[in-house]
Amino acid sequence: MTALLSVQSLGIRFGAVRAVNDVSFSAKPGEVLSIIGPNGAGKTTLFNMISGVYQPSQGRIRFDGADVTELLPHQLAERGLSRTFQNLQIFHQMTALENVMAGRHLMERRGILSDLFGLSTTRRHNRETKQAAEALLERVGLADIAHREAGGLSYGMLKRLEIARALACLPQLLLLDEPAAGCNPVETEEVEGLIAQIAHEGVGILLVEHDMKMVMRISSHIVVLDHGEKLAEGRPEEVRGNPRVLAAYLGVTEGEEETADALD
């Protein structure tokens, strides 16, 4: 299968800091590709470049057969790329349901006059959007808080709300930045199940997650970043046994034995 996303020698600098440097990899539809690495390794920055939030200072990004390096986030969304955020980006003043409805933006035909005068086109769109959004909330287990204002929801709920909103865009590629952070073990398991299911439906997934057990179980492929550079990549079992990865992760010299457990 051809790559859905391919990133070639991607890099960005903030002043003198090279947050990401010369990173290449590619992702396929229906697979979970995980990006791991210690805090500050550049994972979120990489996501920001791929989703168009930051403009890379070097390298190219190809998505779905086209060069998308210079596209803006909303243009990438139109092509089927959507994401969640490590530091939540929620529409606080809307209800949970409205957050997901907003995610359907691209599926709605927007006639401003119809919207101002509440014409039947708008009413039909509202109905369809609402039904789709309710189904997505159900899917992430938030159906019963649909009408609560998002600003008052717990962190774990908001993490799942962002997944529902991102799914509302009907993505081909979904970027998840620490989706299980702040979730309890039961919620984490649900999130893992959800990710596996989304991938199974053919969506490509880029995952950043600190729960290594989950990463090892769910990923088809793992890319390891350290100090903005790609340190290693491979299947989970290859990465797990790589001494350079262990060293980077734990800040210890290669060969220290007890550290091997950390990535199990």
Binding site: P73, H74, E78, Q89, H105
Partner: peptide, 12 residues
């Protein structure tokens, strides 16, 4: 109003 970056990423 609440998050421009999230608005962008849903295609707005």
């Amino acid at each position: 109003h609440d998050s421009e970056v999230a608005a962008r990423t849903v295609g707005i």
